[in-house]
Simulated assay, not measured.
Amino acid sequence: MKETPVLKSSDPAGANQHYGDNPIEVRDTDHYKQEYVRGFVEKWDELIDWDARAQSEGQFFIDLLRERGKRQVLDAATGTGFHSVQLLKAGFQVTSCDGSAEMLAKAFENGRKRGLILNTVHADWRWLNRDLAGKYDAIVCLGNSFTHLHEERDRRRTLAEFYAALKHDGILILDQRNYDQILDRGFSSKHKYYYCGDQVTAAPEYVDESLARFRYDFPDGSTYHLNMFPLRKAYTTNLMMEVGFTSVKTYGDFQENNDDADFFIHVAEKSYDG
């Protein structure tokens, strides 16, 4: 699938997102700092719809962590705080981390509205252990966030930082869109998991083997974009193993053996007895 992209947005609400004259040339990991502008962050929860997302994923992540006896969790891609809040409410000890200061501020606000004080850390994954102290039972990196890393060296370094931040028997839970389907058969979505807001349109505007440029249209007429790297499922799992994780199990939309899913969830073990 390949379409001619809109080179410049005429929407004033998205004007602070700067991609230059040719947005599809912007394939730089550091650009995420300019993508999550305040206007976009303020609308992000319209895209997620916390209530609908909580219903769609149920106890999946909570059960995964409890079954493995994990308690101390690093939410490495906190975003607006959805999973940090769910895990805190379930009794886990949570550190909420994000590379976007705007996202962290929104997450803290969302937690406070629900009677929770989030322990937030502003950190770039590539230098994660410089900004964090201690080791974690589990790291969750959710919301298709890993695809913001455009260079392989950044992906390898981030996974190595995650590995180092885990205890000897820790686990990493990392998700991604089903980019295999998007690249090979075109985009379709059941709009049931993750991005559950039924008034927001999220779809790729341009796709090739090293870029998925998504466009987000909101009910007020505002439009925003994200440039991401389209990770293939096998590539991601192989990279995890190469970095040192001993086993990786992948779920599709919270189910086993579901390659037709909208999202994949990889559960990587640092050590494996079995």
Rank of each mutant, 00 (worst) to 15 (best):
E67V: 01
E152K: 14
A165K: 09
A268L: 02
T120D: 02
Q34I: 03
I24A: 01
G134D: 04
Q181N: 14
E256R: 14
R112P: 02
E42C: 02
F229P: 05
E67R: 09
G244A: 03
N144C: 13
D21L: 13
E42N: 10
T250G: 09
Q59C: 04
M1Y: 09
Y272F: 14
I24H: 13
R215G: 10
R232K: 15
H122K: 11
D45V: 00
Y235M: 02
D180T: 11
G111I: 00
Y216G: 06
S222A: 13
W125V: 01
L7G: 11
S100Y: 05
D21N: 15
V267I: 14
M103Y: 07
E109W: 09
D49V: 02
F264T: 03
L159T: 08
L74Y: 08
E242A: 14
K70G: 02
A105Y: 00
V207I: 12
K8G: 03
E151C: 01
L149D: 08
K167V: 01
I117K: 12
K270T: 09
D184Y: 08
Y163V: 06
Y195F: 12
T95H: 02
W44S: 04
R157T: 12
S247N: 14
R215D: 06
D260V: 00
H191V: 03
S9N: 07
Y235G: 08
T4W: 08
I173E: 07
G39M: 00
D198P: 08
R153V: 01
R232H: 10
Q86T: 00
T237R: 12
V140R: 08
L166V: 09
E152I: 00
H191R: 15
E102F: 01
V200N: 09
Q181E: 14
G39N: 15
A165C: 11
L172G: 05
G134T: 03
P204E: 07
V94S: 06
I182P: 07
L116Q: 11
F254S: 04
D253G: 14
D98G: 02
N258G: 12
I139G: 03
S247Y: 09
K270C: 08
T250S: 10
T78M: 00
H150S: 11
I62Y: 01
K270S: 13
A164P: 01
I48K: 08
R156L: 12
M228C: 13
A234V: 10
R155V: 07
R153M: 06
Y235L: 06
E256V: 15
G197K: 07
E46F: 07
A160P: 06
T147R: 07
D124Q: 05
K106H: 13
L64Y: 03
T29D: 11
I265D: 02
H225D: 04
D98N: 06
G99I: 00
A107Q: 01
D30M: 02
L104I: 05
G186W: 05
H31C: 10
